[in-house]
Simulated scan of single mutants.
Amino acid sequence: MSFSKTLLVGLRSEQFRHPLDLRATTALKQIPGLDVLIRNLLGALGEQYFYLENIASGVQVGPKQLPDLHQLLLEAAEVLDVEAPQLYVRQHPVPNAYTFAMRGRQAFVVLHTSLLELLTPEEIQAVIAHELGHLKCEHGVYLTLANLITLAVGQVPNWGTLVAQSLQAQMLEWLRCAEFSCDRAALLATQNPRTVMSVLMKLAGGSPSLSPQLNLDAFLEQARSYDAIGDDALGETLKQLQTEQLSHPVPVLRAREIDRWSSSQNYYDLLKSGQSCYTGGTNATGGWRNW
């Protein structure tokens, strides 16, 4: 069954970018020589290795290979007005998705099989759209370095000596802020806040057997309880200590942010300015390190 969505023709990242993402990205750009450092690190590690290793170890999605997933990708890219990257599926027991966007090379998105088994088609499209958000916001080489930091630990010898601890901490802080913008991209693509929040709930405590029993409204109440812990200085300190080594914000916080933004004038104005159309036909309505 097809369903109505608004195409966001001419959508610009600054129209939906989260303020924390904008501030953190600006701070990174002000570090002298950071772009050169990133390129040197990527060269030393062999960015070509990661690209070829992905091709060798995953299944590339296309019209003749997992066409339903390919259609979800094309629909999300069309709504967000962004070029569709390559999409791969990889066997992995940890639900995850990530993007590599190296300048001068073909960007690609990877979905783990365990993530696909956990989510409905519409929720999978939200994950894909989240990854497209990284491309739309031109997170580029910063994103690639952040992904290498989280993926290469334990695989690359002496990784800690290659990346200063202070830079690693700042990159993780930037990535946590960037995730908020990409969650907004997921909402713009699906145009259903409950879909995006359901993904976050399942990543926090779901499994193929438990997911049908989860209650999204109860999860949102949980998010509000998390907010209440920060009413005093001790609560804020505890939450900061909890998240400073994470690559992503905690799921309840991300769900709360989407809940708020979906009721904002900014979100309504973006949909109002778009063009209505019909997409679907793949039962998309049927339904990381966390994504």
Rank of each mutant, 00 (worst) to 15 (best):
M102N: 13
A164Y: 00
P85T: 07
A126M: 10
S114L: 09
A164M: 05
P121R: 12
N96E: 10
L118G: 12
C137T: 15
E122M: 15
Y142A: 11
E117D: 13
T161G: 07
L145K: 04
E122S: 12
V156K: 03
N158R: 10
G160Y: 08
P121H: 04
A152T: 11
G104S: 07
Y98K: 11
N96S: 15
Q155R: 14
L162C: 02
T99N: 09
P93Y: 02
A152L: 14
P157N: 02
E122D: 12
T161C: 05
V109K: 06
V110Y: 04
L119E: 02
M102S: 09
L132T: 05
T144I: 03
P95F: 04
Y142I: 01
A107E: 10
G160M: 12
I128S: 04
H139R: 08
V163F: 01
G133Q: 09
L135I: 15
S114V: 08
E123R: 12
G160H: 14
L143F: 00
H130L: 12
A152W: 01
A84S: 15
A84N: 05
Q155C: 02
T161W: 11
L148N: 02
N96Y: 02
L143I: 01
A152G: 11
T144Q: 07
H92C: 15
V163P: 01
T99R: 08
G154E: 09
I124L: 06
L162F: 07
I149Q: 07
Q106V: 12
N147C: 04
A152E: 07
H139Q: 14
Q86V: 01
A126G: 04
R105G: 00
T144P: 01
L151H: 03
V156T: 12
A146M: 04
N96V: 08
A152F: 07
A101T: 06
G140Y: 01
T144D: 14
N147E: 13
V163K: 02
E117K: 12
A164H: 11
V94H: 10
P95I: 12
P93D: 08
E123P: 04
G140C: 02
T161F: 14
L119D: 03
G160I: 11
Y88R: 08
L87W: 00
T99M: 15
R105S: 12
C137F: 00
L145S: 05
A152N: 04
G140F: 01
P121V: 13
L148D: 02
A101N: 13
L116T: 06
L111S: 05
A107Y: 00
T144K: 00
A129C: 05
I128Q: 03
M102T: 13
F100L: 15
E117W: 01
F108E: 09
F108Q: 09
E123C: 10
L135W: 05
T99F: 03
H92I: 06
L145P: 03
T150K: 03
Q91G: 02
Q106C: 01
V89Q: 07
V89E: 07
Q106P: 03
V153D: 06
Y142E: 12
G154I: 04
E122H: 07
N158T: 06
E122F: 08
L119P: 05
L115A: 14
G140L: 09
E138G: 01
L118V: 08
H130R: 12
L143N: 13
G133D: 05
V156R: 02
V153R: 14
K136H: 14
H134T: 06
L118K: 10
